[in-house]
Design a protein around this nucleic acid. Structure first.
Lengths: 341, 341
DNA sequence: CTGAAAGCGCTTACAG
DNA sequence: CTGAAAGCGCTTACAG
């Protein structure tokens, strides 16, 4: 019933090859036949089959989206979902649609990302990730398939990555705290398996020392993940171990929000008793009391850049390029500054 | 280079048909050849091509995800993204992956949803929607492609939909307000083009009358959408028009959050001066001060049910079924109750 | 500027 | 229980 390239060719009185060339904008076609064929395609509402084209060309115009890592990163993750939102827009603009791989246990090719990319002939993929990345990801990374990583350093020859400057953001936080007069600084990180968290911690400690302050290990706590509960527990551990620092930088906003909840329960005021700065600038920052100061990761820019980098990786033999995005300190109420946004 | 069904057949010394049957779990194959072929597939790391299979069968094992409506619903929408999250999990469990259609202007098939579904041979699709739905959606709805709508009533013979009981939720809100002693009740809705908002308003007014109270039209404001700014403006309009009601139900949490901001600016306390109840139970409700009471939509259940309904629509000639999910009142601090969650 | 034909990698009657 | 062959709807050298 459905009209295909053969139907169009017959109706136009031309060959299938000619129709194909017209669809693909070949130049060596007379204007006459081109307009005639185009007209018939419009009349009949012809839609070319993607699977046939993919089978013939090995290109699907599809980008695979992979949530990697054992830790449950999914659509509800406030940072990654915003990055993906902007990635999707830019990728759509470039003419691609997005294929989200399910990773449920029941799935046949579950966990074998490279196999699934080949199965669907995706033209490239974006990998967003929590901690504890599976070996299957690096198999993909080193394959011929173009990949772009967000918050994960891909090293393959057809791979690239993009992330915020995690080292520098910590410097900005310490500098701010220092200027506010705080001298005793603490840090709440995620698990030690997170490179992101570790880089932020390293940057934080280095900055503390560069300002001539002392690092007190009792004020450095690493939780299990980037979520709220870990921040809550971190504060409780700090309180149990020692007196509190004057100011704390948390490696995510959710950690910071958990931390503020714990402080409140201990009758410690934010920022008067303990100043807090989070990281990411998720929506929730605006709704907490006090409103949470944070390091803004430019999620829109990260998403758009990821799309453009991937596009270049797919369409040119461009050198793999890795981009670091400048983070920005956003002052609200939780960090003891008089400044408002 | 890459191994295909022919390679496998040759290596196993059988025909291509036989290999195909084994992949598709046909029963009329001897155990011997089956194990031999399976073994070779494993050794070679054979991955069947989805496009070839789709071309031959017209089934892609892909579900199209469509964000419909002129109003910008995207990944950052706190309600729909949670529904999609649970939908994706359940759909993955059922063996499907998700294809997200871009809807950027530059895209060739932009706006023609049916064409895009046919282009990719999706087995079915899920439509989530804001207001002002395009005509192209109902073309899809009435096509042969199985569709499931979330918060939109699809009427086609291979379509179904799922939503919360929008009428009943309003009754629950009014009942609660009534029991708390409030007699002057207001409502903040979205645009009049939103069926969802209109149903909630209708239910609200009917409930008010069934409790023998009066409806004051000055206390019923419809904004432009379900977002924060509309709620903010709605309160300003109410204040400009009349004295304030004692309690207000907002058709979304974001409207409620905007409303609370406006009330605060006018020195009106929540809930002492005006009690507020929102709708959806998004994450942010927990972080506002006071914490926002709300109608919880069971997003996890809605997503899972949508997946199961769609699966049935695809795999059986099941009657189209439309499901209404029971909403639940969640009491926090903003509605004047002594109860805590 | 146009067309015939092989090929992409599967599935599916059909014959044996 | 197994296989030969046609077909799905495109693209791409190649010949003219």
């Amino acid at each position: 019933m459905s009209v295909n390239i053969k139907t169009i060719a017959k109706m136009a009185g031309v060959s299938v090859s000619t129709v194909s060339k017209i669809m693909n904008n070949y130049s060596d076609i007379s204007e006459d036949t081109r307009t005639k064929v185009l007209e018939i395609m419009k009349q009949t509402g012809y839609v070319p089959s993607n699977s046939a084209k993919t089978l013939a060309t090995k290109k699907s115009n599809l980008i695979g989206v992979i949530f990697a890592g054992k830790l449950n990163i999914d659509f509800t993750h406030p940072f990654f979902i915003e990055v993906l939102n902007s990635f999707k827009k830019q990728m759509g603009f470039l003419g691609y649609d997005l294929l989200f791989f399910s990773n449920e246990k029941s799935h046949a090719l579950d966990g074998d990302y490279l196999a699934r990319c080949r199965h669907f002939n995706v033209d490239g993929c974006i990998i967003v990730t929590g901690q504890q990345v599976e070996p299957s990801i690096s198999e993909l990374d080193y394959s011929e398939i173009p990949c772009i990583g967000v918050d994960i350093e891909l090293k393959g020859r057809s791979s690239g990555y993009i992330m915020s400057d995690n080292y520098k953001m910590s410097y900005k936080v310490v500098e701010h705290f220092y200027l506010q007069g705080y001298r005793e600084l603490g840090y709440i990180g995620s698990t030690l398996e997170s490179d992101i968290s570790n880089t932020r911690e390293k940057g934080y400690k280095d900055a503390i020392e560069s300002f001539g302050l002392a690092v007190n290990e009792n004020w450095f706590i690493n939780g299990d993940n980037f979520f709220e509960e870990s921040g809550y527990e971190a504060i409780n551990k700090m309180i149990a171990a020692d007196r509190m620092p004057q100011a704390v930088f948390a490696a995510s906003d959710l950690l910071a929000i958990g931390a503020m909840r714990a402080l409140k329960e201990h009758q410690l005021r934010v920022p008067q008793d303990v100043a807090i700065i989070g990281c990411d600038d998720i929506e929730a920052c605006k709704y907490t009391t006090p409103a949470l100061s944070t390091i803004r990761q430019n999620k829109d820019k990260i998403g758009r850049l990821a799309a453009s980098l991937l596009f270049d990786l797919i369409n040119t033999q461009s050198e793999t390029s890795n981009v670091v995005v400048e983070p920005e300190l956003v002052i609200r109420e939780s960090c003891g500054s008089r400044l408002k946004e």
